[in-house]
Amino acid sequence: MTVLLDDPMVTTPWVIDQMRRETADTFTFILKPVKGHGRGSFQFEPGQFNMLYVFGTGEVPISISGTQEQNGKLEHTTRVAGTVTGAMGKLRSGDVIGIRGPFGSHWPIENAIGKDVIVVAGGIGLAPLRPVYNALVGRRDEFNKIVLLYGSRTPEDILFRSELEKLSANLDIEVFVTVDRSTMGWRGNVGVVTSLLRNVPFDPRNAVAMVCGPEIMMRFSVHELQRRGLKEEEIYISMERNMKCAIGHCGHCQYGPEFICKDGPVFPYNRISNLLGTREL
């Protein structure tokens, strides 16, 4: 019995190098290839996702939260949401999971060169944008203003907190964090992330926005950005649907004419704006 290496449905084992707890219900895996498996380097673009397989339990799509330069290591941040992610949360460093990928479209970093960049994240939606802000900061000179807006449920749910604090201390990127519900000791902003958009400094004639979070949060963010005068084709959002194969064969992730797995998950808003208003599409 031999493994068909070119079968896109066959997973590749990766070992958990480090398991980092982020908040009460989110965690990050840092993975490295298992010796004798894999294909050398793992190339991906910010916004792309992998299918993560837990032995005997199942497979789920999780976006890549690590940066591109990580000595061949791969990073995924996820929230315990169901059977498979629940099983993932119980894994420890040294355990092995399966990886297929990377799949899907990516955030338009090249399109943002020479423009103001507004990154808007809600909840776990910060994870797929993490490679974006890290790439932007790494190539700081190529962009104008960089603004990161992040809405979290409570102060305790803030992801990558120390990293955001470090970024915020850097004067060349503006970071605004807000929580929907404040708890004891929180001295930061309270309110939904969309209300931050109203007064955030950027030039709508020369800017690009990348938005990721729950669908409702993205829709309201897009409205605010449009109200600020940003063009539809300069607003990018990341969609989510059921996925079984990630290669456009299983049919589950269809959204109107789009396959979220191969045409998305990242779309320019104008490409799907006519779909967002239809219920149960």
Partner: peptide, 11 residues
Amino acid sequence: VAARLQILDLY
């Protein structure tokens, strides 16, 4: 609108 979004507890 902001208050309604807060009520939804989206995250």
